[in-house]
Design a binder for these strands. Sequence first.
RNA 1: GGCCCGUUCGUCUAAGGGCUAGGACACCACCCUUUCACGGUGGUGAUACGGGUUCGAAUCCCGUACGGGCUACCA
Length: 507
Amino acid sequence: MDTTVRVRFAPSPTGGLHLGGVRTVLYNYLFARQHRGEFVLRIEDTDQNRYVQGAEAYIFDCLQWCGLEPDESVVHGGAYGPYRQSERKENYRQYAEQLVRDGHAYYAFDTPEELEKMRQENRSETNPSPQYDHAVRNRMKNSLTLKEEEVNRLIKEGIPHVIRILIPKEERVSFTDMIRGEVSFETSVVDDKVLLKADGMPTYHLAVVVDDFLMKITHAFRGEEWLPSAPVHILLWKYLFGLDKMPQWAHLPLILGPNGKLSKRDGAKYGFPVFAMNWTDPVTGELTEGFKEKGFLPEAFINLLALLGWNDGTDQEIFRLEELVEKFSMDRVHSGGARFDYEKAKWFNHEWIKASNAGRLMPFVKPVLEAKGLPVNDESFLEKIITLVKERCHLLPDFYDQSFFFFKSPEKIDLEAIQPKWNEQKQLFFAEVIRNFELDPEWKASILESNFKEIAAANHIKPGDVLLPFRIMLVGGKFGPGVFDIAEILGRDETIHRIKETLLRLS
RNA sequence: GGCCCGUUCGUCUAAGGGCUAGGACACCACCCUUUCACGGUGGUGAUACGGGUUCGAAUCCCGUACGGGCUACCA
């Protein structure tokens, strides 16, 4: 008996990959790793009308960035391929036909216009969304109402038709969800979903069941928005493969935006990323921002996603991926939806930046600076800077604001912050500081600081009165790490140069 | 409208019948820091409502309210 845990993430390549999608990937990945199982990525591209150029490659890019690589997929290979449903088209028809033979499904010849008409006629105050169900199926054009010869004739003539599931009249369908426990539905309110479309492609409902079976999926995790269609899938499992073969389901709580299910619109509206990486719609050219480009570390992104709906029962909030693999459990996943909080997301990133050493940060920070035109040719120089400023960076681009002055003289010097209290005495003080710095043999922050303070004392100046001016001379404003640390890294020549420059502008 | 899922500080959550309902983000105050941060200490702030069950309910049950999802030949 094969008991290998096999899970799958089954996105439809129609656009960017958002938070909820990545979290589903993450939970799949964690579950698979923890059980030494296999994680499959299946592309659900059964809707040809929704094909989007580049969307599939984009999904793989996102997973790679997150470090959540599948074991089997279109690009990783595997024994259960093809992993693109459009390439599995032949598989589905036979199952649909089998259902028809067994009396669990039927052919339907209704045209889109006829369906619209049916909905139009049945629409009312009490029934705003009429369904194709037991109440109307006997009045429609299908193999339930047509004579057998007529059905055969229509099929032979190539009249477009679909296959619909025949939902039983009054039956209680229930299953045990790993997160919610027992969930049940009354079939009388479930409609006869299309299984096989007129173009021969399966709908999600058929495809998910057939492929989960063929790919030997043991646990199926998906968003809560799928819960209402679960009875259809349960019934299909029962009719086709047997409920004992059905994977265990877990319907993950939704990630909510400021109002309702998080959408990419929310991101644009409230100024936070929703997709994992930048996504540009190939048709409209519209760009939707991603966490990566916004300046998140993949570790932080994973961490914050893991905690959006799950916790290990302790107060711990910072987790490495390996730790999550060890500690994750589906029964500690919350059943209620979780509102995404961008402030908290940034906090996670900040924590990860602080916890990462300069070497780890280097490949992220260097491009940030270079993109802004700063020349980074000495990595050990940059390493010192990263270590010095990282605790004040929440997002990667903050590294620019916190360290540009190490690479070039500040363009703007906040003279207004020093001018009002500027005087001859301070002018003379800095002249002496320059002379002292020129002679200093070691050029170390601690020495610089003690010399600076001694000179101040000798001139009867409070250090506080000259420290801020000194800072502004070096960085241009009231920000940055310790001013003597800055001077040390800047070096003797540059430090003295900047003091002189500002002195000139002050006099 | 119908069906399904849900409901603990503003937000993410802990507490699986038993201490004063705990932590984190955010916010506020103070300390540290002669900048900005980091850090530290403290503070504001929650069991939706009504009924049961029980010696005892955030926790179990019922109802109500509210929120969300679904209701396509989309996934």
